[in-house]
């Protein structure tokens, strides 16, 4: 029998987290949404707010620096994902060739970068990439490549190729990418290894008897069967990459050339104190992220069903 005190306890237990959730995420979101339609800045925060409709939104999408920040973020995600998937897969294949007994010792050092705080990683790489005496330049000069100004908007071909310029592959952008790839490729290795180890040996034996060569088995069995897990990781990484701040800030501060969405939001919101404008930008980003999450989870859910097939 449920007594009255029990019911009170149940309701309190549920209500407490609900109230906290409302307080820390739903109310702020609604507040941000509402001020995005006004012209709230630092000087009129406590006085009169003027309703200006969608003007903030229009201003956000017509500002070149915002577009640059969005492009930087998008390209960062695309390049990093592409390279990390391929690098992770290659390392996984390499590890598969190693005797099972020694695999752990090989995987561990790859995993270590993940344990470091992003700010530490950024500081570390700033040293490595520095023009004078940086480890990378020293190594390059040692093998006769000379030195590069890594943390700069230079490009390798000085912008003579239009496509390359539009792809934004400056030394600085490459440097930011490098850090991300160094730190997170091993997660893809781990997920590929897990996915491969989930494959039962009968599936592979069956494919071999059905006429598949080892390459066929890899292409037609290993990779398709790893997809659901890979999709899950991609979604996690996209969410994580949308939050990247430290590397860019340590390398370039608030430079608008390299700013991603987060740097830009902080600049507008906290340095310029242009609250409504920043709110409108935030809402746009929020909707995009929400869309990615919504679609991503659906894709993962559908793809994951193949694990129930047997």
């Amino acid at each position: 029998m449920k007594s009255k005190t029990d019911e009170f306890v149940y309701k309190t237990l549920i209500a407490a987290p609900l109230i906290i959730l409302l307080a820390v995420s739903v109310f702020p979101l609604l507040f941000v949404l509402s001020i995005s339609f006004f012209n709230v800045r630092s000087y009129n925060l406590t006085s009169h707010w003027e309703f200006i409709g969608l003007q903030n939104y229009l201003a956000v999408i017509s500002d070149r620096e915002n577009i640059t920040a969005i492009m930087n973020t998008a390209l960062y995600i695309l390049y990093a994902l592409g390279i990390e998937i391929i690098a992770g897969l290659l390392i996984a294949i390499l590890i598969l060739y190693v005797n099972e007994r020694y695999r752990l010792y090989l995987i561990l050092p790859f995993m270590l970068p993940m344990l470091l705080a992003p700010i530490v990683v950024a500081m570390l790489w700033k040293q490595v990439l520095s023009y004078d005496g940086g480890l990378l330049n020293r190594g390059l000069s040692l093998v006769g490549f000379g030195s590069f100004v890594w943390l700069s908007p230079d490009t390798f071909f000085n912008g003579s190729i239009p496509l390359q310029q539009s792809l934004n592959l400056t030394h600085g952008f490459l440097s930011i990418l490098l850090v991300e790839i160094w730190q997170w490729s091993p997660v893809f290795t781990a997920v590929f290894l897990v996915a491969f180890s989930l494959l039962r040996k009968e599936i592979i034996q069956s494919a071999i008897v059905d006429g598949a060569t080892p390459f066929n088995v890899f292409k037609d069995i290993y990779i398709p069967m790893a997809k659901p897990l890979l999709y899950g990781l991609i979604l996690l990484r996209v969410m994580d990459m949308l939050k990247v701040y430290e590397t860019v800030w340590v390398f370039f501060g608030n430079s608008s050339v390299f700013a991603n969405v987060n740097i830009r939001l902080v600049t507008i919101g906290i340095e310029f104190r242009n609250y409504s404008y920043c709110a409108a930008f935030s809402i746009i980003i929020f909707l995009v992220v929400f869309g990615i999450l919504f679609l991503g989870t659906r894709v993962i859910d559908r793809a994951g069903r193949l694990y129930y097939a047997d």
Partner: peptide, 14 residues
């Protein structure tokens, strides 16, 4: 020139 049916594996899930 053989075919094989396995104990615990029936279909390619994907």
């Amino acid at each position: 020139n053989i075919s094989m049916v396995f104990q615990n594996f029936f279909v390619y899930p994907h």
